[in-house]
Write a protein that binds this DNA or RNA. Structure first.
Lengths: 210, 210
DNA sequence: TGTACATCAGTGAACGCGCGTTCACTGATGTAC
DNA sequence: TGTACATCAGTGAACGCGCGTTCACTGATGTAC
């Protein structure tokens, strides 16, 4: 009767054992369809094909589920940024530019994650794990800013934290104003990536004499 | 019996005649207390002291009410930016800097309006009046960018639209990341205003030789 | 290998609640004569 | 100035619904012997 191994979870078994994962994927799906506030906790259960009580085995309430989605989003986001940074190769400025592109690529490719991370949802303050993940992502930008800053001669070296904050704000501003579903971008004759890259080039030029 | 003029609306009369205004103010109050998604249409009626059916006389549904709040927010926002721009005096760069400060001052002073305008709420696309008001506000930044752009000598004159978009994105990015209730700004050793002003100075320096 | 048992993920029925919306209505306001 | 009437803003009761959450339960899984 039990001729199958129980290790690989059977996706349609009574105890399918991966409901936690299924709920998270369902949330991403629902955010994509209805926005981060457009569905109830019961909706998630229904869409995942379980009873409305089942999710309580895994998440205290809807907020806890959304926070976990946001946390995972920040983890992936940090990985993407880290990969784009590529330890500052071939050179810090080019690598920072790659970070900017990776930032927008993530917001474009994973709008559901992005809106769970920055949208109406979580607001990191409470959840330490979420905050830590967000810090990890920002940490990549900060290290990039430090490396770029260090390329300027001592007397005119800009504060790395400031540079990181400027970059983050510009990237986030562009992502939330011009990437979102038809948000406010009509008649803008360039892509978000071009816009950010241009901003970065002007900014870096303004930082020093180079 | 009717010894009082009926022109000035009696705030506590049966037909108080300014329920529309009262609802809008109530929404601002509720956004301040519970965020832009933290209350129902019935809550608004309750908080305004009328029956749950009363708001339907003035707004088709909750969305229509929120859109009107956002629209008014953009109108005021445009006025503030316009005043800060002050027709480019004393000079375009200083006036644009004033616009930046006015941008953040508005987001700081009117967080309820700001989140109705850019937050989880409206998403301009549908409502033409809302879109027009948003355009009016952006128009001020655009004209400012044109005036600043025109101060650069012809060959290196930057596209004004691009400059306006960069400024808007940076200001919005800073406002939404670092102004919101304890959002992500811990351990940042400067105010949002200082951060934006520094970004603007670096950026303008980067635009040309000045 | 087989049996008894503990574990625990998911069930499904139930609850009280507040929602959005409708409806016929009331009564104050403003106007016509 | 007074009276009759139309207008219409707000009432309050009612509706069906889906929500979040709880509960005792069931039955598959994994383990101890």
């Amino acid at each position: 009767m039990s001729f199958r191994s129980h290790r690989p979870p059977d996706r349609d078994a009574y105890h399918h054992g991966n409901l936690r994962e299924a709920l998270i994927e369902t949330v991403l799906d629902l955010i994509g369809k209805h926005g981060p506030a457009g569905f109830s906790y019961a909706d998630v259960a229904r869409a995942a094909g379980v009873s409305p009580a089942a999710p309580y085995r895994h998440f205290r309430d809807r907020n806890a589920l959304m926070a976990e989605v946001a946390r995972r989003g920040f983890e992936r986001f940090a990985e993407d940024l880290e990969a784009a940074w590529n330890q500052g190769r071939p050179d810090p400025v080019a690598a920072m530019d790659a970070c900017g592109r990776a930032y927008l690529a993530f917001a474009r490719r994973e709008p559901a994650f992005y809106s769970a991370m920055f949208g109406a949802g979580a607001s990191a303050t409470d959840d330490p794990a979420l905050r830590a993940a967000a810090d990890r992502a920002f940490g990549v930008l900060r290290r990039a800013a430090e490396a770029v800053s260090a390329t300027y001669p001592g007397p005119e070296r800009p504060p790395a934290l400031m540079v990181a904050l400027h970059l983050w704000a510009e990237a986030h501003g562009i992502a939330s104003l011009f990437l979102s579903p038809e948000g406010l971008r009509r008649g803008i004759p360039m892509t978000a990536e071009e816009l950010l890259e241009a901003a970065l080039l002007v900014y870096l030029k303004g930082l020093g004499g180079r």
